[in-house]
Amino acid sequence: MIGRLFTGLISLALLCSGCASIDKGDNSRLDLIKKRGQLHCGVSGKIPGFSFLSGNGSYEGLDIDICRAMAAAFVGDASKVQYRPLTAPERFTALKSGEIDLLSRNTTFNLSRDAAGGNGLTFAPVVFHDSQRLMVKRSSGIKNLQNLKAANICVGSGTTTEQNLNDAFQERKLSYTPINYQDLNQVIAGYLQGRCAAMTSDGSQLAAARSSFPDPDQHIILDVALSKEPLAPASVGGDQRLGDAMRWVVFALIAAEEFDITQENINSKHQQAKANPQLSSLRRFLGVDAGLGQKLGLADDFVVKVIRATGNYGEIYNRHLGPNSSVTIPRGLNSSYRKGGLLISPPFN
């Protein structure tokens, strides 16, 4: 018995030696990305509108465009991205072990994940303000949480979704039975087959899932927000240069919409800025007046490269989640502050 245990332990040790290796010297991960000429981006790959394998075999979605914008800024080419599809429980270990450079995988920004005593990540600005919701069948007549008392609820495991659901029901002193599936596709299957009265996930994911149902209008998303889910890209904490660069790439997407700079007019705006010395804020933003990009360790014209590759935030949103896309989610909180939304970029000074 002891001998067998010992052999088992050796194999465990062998396994573990492969677990972690990361060069955390003085070099920023940003230098490694530039040297490699390619960005390793952790994504979900399973959520239409955010990251989903399209018909031609490439990934598409809002999260994917964030990866592409980062690659455009860091290595100057939006196509130089290697996508790593990750499950929810895998994602932070993949980041910490250095398997990926950054995470653009509908990850909720919260204290435990940000703090050094928790996951110790660094979050870029929020790219999608979401909230956890419940979806029920229209015919069920369920209108609020009280109607779901003692019901079965289909929920994915390995996400904060489970915790939020529990908090919301406990607060209202309601009981329920969670049916925990491993990933969203199984949650959907369980819900559609009638195992549960309701399924829960982030509102965006529910809308994305519903878009692929045979009868989308037979399902309603309840108007009860179980949580705030600000989704943001993340990198390993303690790497200020990479964190800063990511932060300002996202701000560049938001600021470009504020400046009305689009994929279409970026070249003319660039020319305009070059020709008119009095447009100083535009010149700084587009890197005509050098300095800002350098401070981040990026090319001075990184904003131009980013906008050429993906367009501004509004364009990215409309491409994947707008009224003409297959997954339609009203912009709501994700509008620019000028239209009553929450998106605002600090000045590029």
Binding site: C19, A88, P89, F92, T93, S112, R113, G118, N119, S157, G158, T159, T160, E162, Q163, N180, Q182
Partner: peptide, 14 residues
């Protein structure tokens, strides 16, 4: 399953 959820909530994967 329980360990899976536990890891997500505590970040104690190893």
């Amino acid at each position: 399953k329980v360990i899976n959820t536990t890891i997500t909530q505590t970040n104690r994967a190893i």
